[in-house]
Simulated scan of single mutants.
Amino acid sequence: MKKFIVIDGLDGSGKDTQVNMIADVYKKQGRDVTIRSHPCSDNKYGRKSKEALLKEGKVNHIKATIYFGLDAIRSVQMYCHNKNTDVVIFSRYILAVMYLPNVVNSIVYKVVTFVLPTSDCMFFLDVSPEESLRRMAGRGDEKEMFENMEDLTKNRLRSQKFTYNWNVIPGDDSAEIISEKIASKCLESDKLLS
């Protein structure tokens, strides 16, 4: 695999929009692009994670995170080491650990970043809870357990202890401004690798 890109952030931060925009940049270069948006619906771990996210309670909270992790690991195994894939882009990846209980989440994050691939093209879209809720209101999707002002505010603060080695991008900006920042960093990284 020549390029690994991750777009992460709270719900409503524009992850999937940005994944598609950066994928288009690489497709225009004639590169083979694979996109994995977690939780994925093409396997039992992703489906179980999504199922738990649509419920309430601590047990479902932990189930959602564990199944999410298994889904992401499956994607790494299937797509990141595939020699035929030129560019792999993940929407949501290892920052799901922030939803685990405090103390445990820090330990798990360190283990996960040691074991799973990382890159200099990992982006966290730092959206305000207000903007996140505004965007989600227009989607019409079923509401997940973390999609409320209290949890979005709490999780945005929690994310700060994990994003020290990420490219943090203001997520309230327009999709075009965010895309320009992501593409600029990725293309700069490409030049350094060649």
Rank of each mutant, 00 (worst) to 15 (best):
K143A: 15
K143S: 14
K143G: 10
E144F: 06
E144G: 06
E144L: 07
M145P: 01
M145N: 05
M145T: 03
M145K: 06
M145I: 07
M145D: 00
M145C: 01
M145E: 04
F146P: 06
F146Y: 14
F146N: 14
F146Q: 11
F146D: 08
E147L: 03
E147K: 01
E147P: 05
E147T: 01
E147Y: 08
N148F: 12
N148W: 12
N148V: 04
N148S: 00
N148C: 11
M149W: 12
M149H: 12
M149D: 12
E150H: 13
E150P: 03
E150L: 02
E150S: 02
E150I: 02
E150V: 09
E150T: 10
D151M: 14
D151S: 14
D151I: 10
D151K: 15
L152E: 03
L152W: 07
T153A: 04
T153Q: 01
T153Y: 00
T153D: 03
T153C: 09
T153S: 15
T153L: 00
T153P: 10
K154G: 03
K154D: 00
K154P: 03
N155P: 02
N155F: 13
N155E: 14
R156E: 07
R156C: 01
R156N: 10
R156T: 04
R156S: 04
R156A: 10
L157R: 09
L157E: 15
L157C: 08
L157M: 08
L157I: 09
L157N: 11
R158T: 15
R158A: 15
R158G: 02
S159R: 05
S159Q: 07
S159C: 14
Q160V: 00
Q160I: 06
Q160Y: 11
Q160A: 08
Q160G: 00
Q160S: 09
Q160N: 06
Q160H: 09
K161P: 00
K161D: 13
K161S: 04
K161T: 05
F162I: 04
F162A: 03
T163P: 02
Y164A: 13
Y164V: 11
Y164S: 15
Y164M: 12
Y164G: 14
Y164H: 12
Y164F: 01
N165A: 12
N165E: 04
N165Q: 09
N165D: 10
N165M: 09
N165T: 09
N165F: 05
N165Y: 03
W166I: 01
W166K: 07
W166E: 01
N167C: 12
N167G: 13
N167S: 13
N167I: 13
N167F: 09
N167A: 14
V168W: 08
V168E: 04
V168G: 00
V168D: 08
I169A: 01
I169D: 02
I169Y: 06
I169H: 02
I169M: 02
P170M: 04
P170R: 03
P170Y: 09
P170T: 06
P170F: 07
G171H: 11
G171L: 08
G171S: 10
G171D: 08
G171N: 12
G171Y: 12
D172P: 04
D172W: 05
D172I: 07
D173T: 10
D173M: 13
D173P: 07
S174R: 08
S174A: 02
S174V: 07
S174N: 01
S174C: 02
S174F: 04
S174Q: 07
